[in-house]
Design a protein around this nucleic acid. Structure first.
Length: 593
RNA sequence: GCGGUCGUAGCUCAGCCUGGUUAGAGCGCUGGCCUGUCACGCCAGAGGUCGCGGGUUCGAACCCCGUCGACCGCGCCA
């Protein structure tokens, strides 16, 4: 036996190895002690093999001392199992190994976190003992899935002529965007680096430098509060930028990459054959959100005309104000008072006064709307609404009114809730779409001032001419999001590579040239020396893997995540610096009040 | 910064609404028994400041106030 630890792995032995003398190393997954005979499930990266010890074995006594997660090396003989003893759940279930020698390579204390059986454990424990958590099959498989996805992305991008570059981690603070992580400079005391929120500027420089197709599995750092689908601190993007490219060129690259990834790793669930393009404005109107879940078939419709000057005074008077409308969420098969009341209560819990509804039932061979709202507006208007929404007996519709911005967020939730309750969500598939034509500018509701609504560096549709002649609020950008099952996977844009046009865009957002020159000097400079038209996108890696793995928490697809309070419980980060470190950096701590 | 939910054995949870003997169950752990299990089985045992502090009460896991923590959400994330 030449190797000190193993001749085979724990996932390798088959019936064909019957009779061989072999050596295995691994963790004691589980011991089943029958007094006279002892079964040890031995586990390594590759699988589990059943090891058997009986009183005839020279190491029977040692085997009796084994506990969960001991690391051992065994020598033994592979034996074919009798037909009635085969374990079909194990890849190695046709055989077992009779142990002849056994060495304990490392003992294990009583476990703070069991590996076998994977019982639910508090996340704090799982993060403190992440190395144990990672021994558990389900987390382990998700981390391996992530690795496979990243490897496939590299392959797919490479096949398309994209070249992977590394960009700086110690870089400059960007005045726009999220909070930066700052790193103090020792050489320049009092100055700080910032960790990149994304390699946004570097990827543009790459293309401006003439590298036609850039990509990177890029680490991004943002000091913002976490959510279930948003890790505190750091995350990864498939960062892409292309020279001489239009919006359509970016779509043409990303669509097949996404489709291949989701088809290969998506548990066989079907993937949209084409990715429909939905204008931002239409998405907000139909779904109340710019990241619609297209597995949900419900679409809102504007039904203002049916309520104008009607006897439903709340809506009728509402509609007299500027910028208001009434929208209906159809609810096929939701036509019971019970269901409608439940949704109304849901609306009230969400802070609305309520949600009006009509439901339709059969009456004397006729379809009649029921509910207080139907009574108020009368039979004709109720019927017109039914016709518009294409609803039948047994269906219902819910109504929201006011300025769209005041109810759209709730409408999106309600649409989601209604579809879930009525079981209308199409399960087990990936439905993609593009959201396009985002507005370049928006009016701040408080200050009334016009600012960028998205990325200031995006190319406005219509270019300079549009900026000079159109109402800024009507100008749209070449900006786009890719959305899958209601999850925003990424944003992208055609970049504004014309300096004059960039100045003009900032001017409309209330910033003069000096502001742009000061805050974006690198970008401004790069546009002065022959910047090609270019465009890009950056899908979030974790979001993709979450969808593929079917989990709704980003920490379930991250090997060593920070907790909700942005702490590393294993290594104790963040931690206090030493006085010497502070001195070298020229920093002094002050007390927080 | 704000809101919601939760906090009882190492873990998952019951008990709390309606205060009253010794706070229970399953899993895990320890010991014993068991020669074919693979979620092995059987017997026994250890293990609790009911998150913490205060209040009400003759009496608090239970009611009230405060506080700490976890998770989820809002703000934030161009």
């Amino acid at each position: 036996m030449s190797h000190p630890y193993r001749s085979h792995t724990c996932g390798e032995l088959r019936r064909a190895n019957d009779g061989e003398n072999i050596r295995l190393s691994g963790w004691v997954h589980r011991v089943r002690d029958h007094g006279g005979v002892l079964f040890i499930d031995l586990r390594d990266h590759y699988g589990i093999t059943q090891v058997v010890a009986d009183p005839d074995s020279p190491v029977f006594k040692v085997a009796n001392e084994l506990r969960a997660e001991f690391v051992i090396r065994i020598d033994g003989k592979v034996t074919k199992r009798d037909d009635d003893l085969i374990n079909p759940k194990l890849a190695t279930g046709d055989i077992e190994v009779f142990v002849e020698d056994l060495q304990v390579l490392a003992k294990a204390d009583e476990l703070p976190l069991p590996v076998f059986g994977e019982p639910d454990y508090p996340e704090e424990t799982r993060l403190t003992y992440r190395f144990l958590d990672l021994r558990r099959e389900s987390l382990r498989q998700r981390i391996l899935l992530r690795a496979d996805v990243i490897a496939a992305l590299r392959r797919l991008m490479g096949e398309r002529g994209f070249v992977e570059f590394q960009t700086p981690i110690l870089t400059a603070s960007s005045p726009e965007g999220a909070r930066d992580f700052l790193v103090p400079s020792r050489i320049h005391q009092g100055k700080f680096y910032a960790l990149p929120q994304a390699p946004q500027q570097f990827k543009q420089f790459s293309v401006i430098a003439g590298f036609d197709k850039y990509f990177q599995i890029a680490p991004c750092f943002r000091d913002e509060d976490p959510r279930a689908d948003r890790s505190p601190g750091e995350f990864y993007q498939l960062d892409i930028e292309m020279g001489f490219a239009t919006q359509e060129d970016v779509f043409a690259v990303i669509e097949p990459v996404m489709r291949e990834i989701f088809e290969e790793f998506g548990q066989g669930h079907p993937v949209s054959s084409s990715f429909p393009k939905i204008r931002y404005r239409d998405a907000m109107r139909r779904y109340g959100t710019d990241k619609p879940d297209l597995r949900n078939p419900l679409e809102m419709e504007v039904v203002s005309s049916h309520f104008a000057d009607s006897n439903f005074k709340i809506f009728a008077s509402l509609l007299k104000k500027e910028g208001t409308e009434i929208r209906a969420i159809p609810a096929p098969k939701g036509g019971s008072r019970r269901f409608c009341d439940r949704m109304n209560v849901f609306a009230q819990k969400e802070g609305l006064p309520g949600m009006g509804y009509v439901f339709w039932r059969a009456e004397d061979n006729d379809i009649v709307g029921a509910g207080p709202l139907a009574k108020n507006i009368g039979r004709e208007r109720t019927e017109a609404i039914r016709q518009q929404l294409g609803l039948e007996v047994g269906d219902a519709a819910f109504f929201l009114g006011g300025r769209p911005s005041s109810f759209e967020a709730f409408a999106a939730k309600a649409r989601d809730r209604i579809a879930h309750e009525l079981d209308l969500i199409e399960q087990d598939q990936f439905k993609f779409c593009w959201i396009v034509d985002f507005p370049m500018f928006e009016r701040d509701p408080d200050s009334e001032e016009i600012g960028f609504s998205h990325n200031p560096f995006s190319m406005p549709q219509g270019g300079m001419e549009a900026l000079e002649t159109e109402n800024p609020l009507d100008v749209m950008g070449y900006q786009y999001d890719i959305v899958c099952n209601g999850v925003e996977l990424s944003s992208g844009a055609v970049r504004n590579h014309k300096l004059e046009c960039l100045y003009k865009a900032f001017e409309l957002a209330g910033h003069n040239r000096a502001f742009v020159d000061t805050n974006f000097s690198g970008m401004v400079n790069s546009l002065k020396f022959g910047a090609p038209p270019h465009a890009g996108i950056a899908p979030g890696i974790e979001r993709i893997v979450m969808l593929l793995a079917g989990v709704d928490n980003i920490r379930e697809v991250t090997m060593f995540p920070l907790n909700q309070r942005a702490e590393d419980l294993m290594l104790g980060a963040p931690s206090h610096p030493t006085n010497q470190a502070l001195r070298e950096l020229g920093l002094r701590m002050t007390k927080k009040d």
